[in-house]
Amino acid sequence: MYDPTRLAALVAVAEDGSITRAAQRLGYTAPALSQQLAKLEREAGASLLVRHHRGARLTAAGELLAARARRVLDELDRARHELARLTGLSGGRLRIGTFPTAGIHLLPPALSAFRRAHPDVELSVAEFEPPQGVAAVADGTLDLALTHVYRPADGVEAVPAAVTVEPLLVEELVVVTAPGHVLTEGSSRLPLTELAGQPLISMAPAHPRRRGVEAALAAAGATPAVVVETPGYAVVCALASAGLGVAVVPEMVARMSTTPVSTRPLEPGELRRTISVVHRGEDASPAAATLLALLRGAFGRSATA
């Protein structure tokens, strides 16, 4: 049985008249495409191409196989669209809510895989600062949302009965400082008590999601020096980078900072952020269920208590 990928390579060469141009169209290097074509020739037991100084042309055997290949590929494409319609993934719209960190670092790979498999579904992405995305899924404004909670938490938030909040990723909070700061010189975990007396870039202390973390830092003796009123981690890291104080942020945020910072894990590692996906369980649309499966596959193994 012929490999459809190799049949597509043969058709592309027939249409472009060149292995190089066909490789560019299909996203291969020319040597890689040549290898696929060589394997197809072995499968066919016949020479399919004649290379010349201006490109390549098909032999009589190649023309015959390319004509059949077009029919096979057309049928496979038709089957893909019919199956997509059968599962509700041809056309329609998938509405997704996210907060900035997840929207930049977690969502794009999953959405890219979704788009490749289901190009006819219209994608809509909107920013919802947690916990707003939970309510938006519950009332039908969104099909799916990414949200987060911090530990320690200031109270337990009620989850609407219509939705499921499923953890995807748990990350520790780390201390960030300007490069070369004495607090981040060591490789071991930094005791939280070492923050006592340090000027703290306080991260939205009135924000419900950060209130428990801010209380833990205050108990350790960290002294607020700069208060960032809105939960913008890029600003927090930039201020820390400029030497205005130290901050405690999620590990992913520190790793992706656009300004140079030094980091160090904290002891004990009890300050955490859990990133979750919010969905409507068995009532989720086929498109939402498909993206949910992609997110589980990418990050679900990282979710721990």
Rank of each mutant, 00 (worst) to 15 (best):
E171Q: 10
A136G: 06
V176A: 03
E171G: 03
L146Q: 03
L144N: 06
A161P: 07
G180L: 02
L169T: 05
L183W: 02
T164N: 11
A161Y: 11
S187I: 15
V156Q: 07
E157D: 10
L168M: 08
A153T: 03
V159P: 05
D143R: 09
P179N: 12
G140H: 00
T141S: 06
A158Y: 09
Y150N: 01
E166I: 12
V176Q: 02
L173D: 07
V163T: 14
P167I: 12
G180C: 01
V176F: 02
E166V: 09
H148Q: 02
V156D: 03
E171P: 05
G140E: 00
T141A: 06
A135Q: 09
E172P: 11
T147M: 09
T141N: 03
V149E: 10
V174S: 06
L183M: 02
L190M: 13
E157W: 07
G186T: 15
L169Y: 07
T184I: 11
V159L: 14
P152R: 08
V165E: 07
V165A: 12
T147L: 08
L168R: 09
D139W: 00
R189Y: 15
L183G: 01
D143F: 10
S188V: 15
E166M: 08
E157P: 05
L173I: 01
E166Y: 14
G155S: 07
T141K: 03
V174W: 07
G155K: 05
H148C: 02
T141F: 01
S187P: 15
S188L: 15
A153C: 06
D143Y: 09
A153F: 03
D139H: 01
T141R: 07
E185R: 15
E185D: 14
G155P: 08
T164G: 10
A153H: 05
V174N: 08
A136E: 04
D139Y: 00
V182C: 01
S188N: 15
D139E: 04
T147C: 05
V137M: 05
L142I: 08
V174C: 06
